[in-house]
Design a protein around this nucleic acid. Structure first.
Lengths: 251, 251
DNA sequence: AAGTGGTCTAGACCACCAG
DNA sequence: TGGTGGTCTAGACCACTTG
């Protein structure tokens, strides 16, 4: 009887809109979940039940359920059933873009100044970061990026020479290091940490900052296959740069 | 002849692994793209060509192509064809979690202190943020969150009373405001801005901070349907809190 | 053994875009 | 008009979980 009710309500929730059936099935299920008719962890009618209740073929039901699963609404277990997923609560996303692209998108002019570009011997910390041995040669670059003449990013980067042997012979006024690295060693994964810090005197000088002005620091590590390609410390003046993100109901 | 070659290479790229056919098709296509055999914007063989070349039914080919499209590898246009998508370059994601959950996940103890919880008349700025009129009643709360007795977040929140009329009558020691708001007005969209700032004297006091200690400020605005539910300013001491994110090749 | 989801097929109709 | 992708179906076989 309870099942009956649940199914009837679902059928009623199917809009008559001129949309593909699998879309309407998805919408009907989403509304059951968001309106609390189907609670988290509760079992959802099986594919065959939905087939007979909604008068739709199983492949279509399957597609609807499969997509809802990949969108985070449902959890499916073979041989067991389909369940409403826990509400993810609060997880949201922030996008981090390429600095040059971002400035261009705002219609502003990007330029940069190479402060240093050299081969150095890895100290123990640097070696650990790149997964190499202490004393091994690595590449290092230090570049300031400007938005309309105003410095907005100080890019301090270590590069694994095995992954990008020609790193030192590039012109970083016409392309950013990241653009180059992406081409020669396509990233497969990355990780970054965002925090608020106070810049030291040298960093303040390069970014033309007053004392006590806070900065956003993004530390980013990038892999190509299983090998670390590069480690970057990106320092942004808090007054000139903000990270923006949007998110939707599920993710 | 060119098509012949492209297709033969694809067939060769089909692994003999014991995996579902649509998965093997996806993998084969991904390898063509990542190895540069199929360049960005280049046309991909049509579904029917793939059907005859790979000896697989069209529904299976269609599923592989559809999933690759939603994963960002391909772009499809009805009546035109399927094409390799531009490399997205650099876009990455950062996750922002619920503070209480995050602390619990680290195995630490979360507690909080309500500094203020009241109804106020909206000033013009607040009214604009919430999409209400100046002078209208709105709810305001100011809460400090602790991780093992150490303050890690100052939460300054405005709430639209139309969307959460019982906001003032909740116990925010046992549940965070966001958890409550999520239940009464499920979010459909949100936006946040992350920046580095210096806290003012009052904020420093609440967070037990020294002078000149930078903070991460996350301003978050949340919608339910088309209406703004809440606007929060979350202030984190830079020395005690960092945002962590990971990303993979595509999104 | 019965029910569940996971996959695959062959064939069909449609909307769309190009020449 | 012919090719493309978008959808849908009916039926099938399988692997998996549970009683």
């Amino acid at each position: 009887m309870v099942e009956q009710t649940a199914l009837s309500q679902l059928a009623a929730a199917m809009s008559a809109q001129p949309a593909p059936i699998y879309q309407r099935v998805k919408q009907a299920i989403i509304s059951q979940i968001t309106e609390g008719v189907w609670q988290a962890n509760q079992r959802v009618p099986s594919e065959s039940e939905l087939v007979s209740e909604l008068g739709v073929s199983r492949m279509t039901i399957n597609r609807a359920l499969r997509e809802l699963t990949s969108e985070g609404y449902l959890i499916r277990m073979q041989g067991v059933g389909t369940f409403v997923a826990e509400v993810k609560g609060y997880t949201a996303m922030l996008e981090v873009h390429n600095i040059a692209e971002e400035i261009a998108q705002r219609g502003h002019t990007h330029s940069s100044k190479v402060l240093s570009l050299s081969e150095v011997k890895a100290d123990p910390e640097q070696a650990a970061i790149l997964g190499l041995s202490t004393g091994q040669s690595i590449y290092h670059s230090l570049i300031v990026h400007f938005e309309n003449e105003l410095p907005v990013q100080l890019e301090d980067r270590l590069v694994n020479p095995l992954m990008a042997p020609d790193y030192l012979n590039q012109d970083y006024l016409s392309q950013t290091p990241y653009t180059y690295l992406m081409r020669v060693a396509p990233l497969t994964a990355g990780e970054h940490i965002v925090e608020a810090v106070l810049p030291d005197a040298r960093q303040r000088k390069y970014l033309s900052l007053d004392e006590h002005e806070p900065c956003l620091l993004i530390r980013r590590q990038t892999w190509s296959d299983a090998k670390i390609v590069t480690y970057a410390k990106l320092l942004y003046p808090g007054s000139r740069y903000k990270l923006l993100g949007r998110f939707k109901g599920h993710g």
